[in-house]
Amino acid sequence: MNRGEITLLGSAFCVILTMHFTIQLLSQHLFYWKNPKEQKAVLIIILMAPIYAIVSFAGLLDFRGSKEFFMFLDSIKECYEALVIAKFLALIYSYLNISISKNMVPDEIKGRKFTIHSQ
């Protein structure tokens, strides 16, 4: 076997391992469904790993004339990443007991303004 085949087999093994752990973690969250609001966000965040693994594995495969296919996969990955960031922020707000419906930044997480004194 050459280096390319070894790399492809190693990455396929890593994708399968990622899928196994993701399914295991998802099933545990669904079995112990106690906080639906937080756990929905956690489930969305957990699904980020297999999406990245599958897109990376597909990038290793040699499809002829598939620039559009890879661009499509990459756009799905980027859109899902934006969703995960938004859900993570909502999860952090939920843990900190901060309401995001008022469209204002709470005092607890506001940045501090510093003045620079010139010498």
Rank of each mutant, 00 (worst) to 15 (best):
M1N: 09
M1W: 04
R3C: 11
R3T: 07
R3H: 14
R3L: 14
G4Y: 15
E5K: 09
E5D: 15
L8N: 02
L9Q: 14
L9Y: 10
S11R: 04
A12F: 05
C14G: 12
C14W: 15
I16D: 08
I16E: 15
L17F: 12
L17W: 09
L17N: 12
M19W: 09
H20I: 15
T22H: 05
I23A: 14
I23H: 13
I23V: 15
I23E: 13
L26P: 03
L26E: 02
L26S: 06
L26C: 03
L26T: 07
S27A: 11
Q28H: 08
F31P: 00
K34V: 11
N35R: 13
P36L: 04
P36G: 00
K37F: 08
E38A: 09
E38V: 05
K40Q: 06
A41C: 06
A41F: 01
V42W: 00
V42T: 06
I44Q: 00
I45N: 00
I45E: 01
I46V: 14
M48T: 10
M48Y: 13
A49I: 06
P50I: 02
Y52N: 10
I54W: 04
V55I: 13
V55Q: 03
S56K: 05
S56G: 15
F57E: 04
G59Y: 11
G59D: 14
L61C: 11
D62F: 09
D62S: 10
D62W: 14
G65E: 02
K67P: 04
F70V: 04
F70D: 01
M71S: 13
L73N: 06
D74F: 10
D74L: 09
S75Y: 08
I76A: 04
I76K: 01
E78T: 15
C79L: 15
C79V: 09
Y80R: 01
Y80D: 00
Y80P: 00
E81M: 15
A82P: 06
A82C: 07
A82T: 13
L83I: 14
I85H: 05
A86F: 06
K87A: 12
K87N: 07
F88P: 02
L89D: 04
A90N: 03
A90K: 02
L91Y: 05
I92L: 10
I92Y: 05
L96M: 04
N97T: 11
I98W: 00
S99W: 03
I100D: 05
S101G: 04
S101V: 12
M104T: 09
M104L: 09
V105S: 03
P106H: 02
I109F: 04
I109Q: 01
I109E: 07
I116D: 04
I116L: 07
H117I: 03
H117L: 12
H117T: 14
H117F: 09
H117P: 05
S118P: 02
Q119W: 10
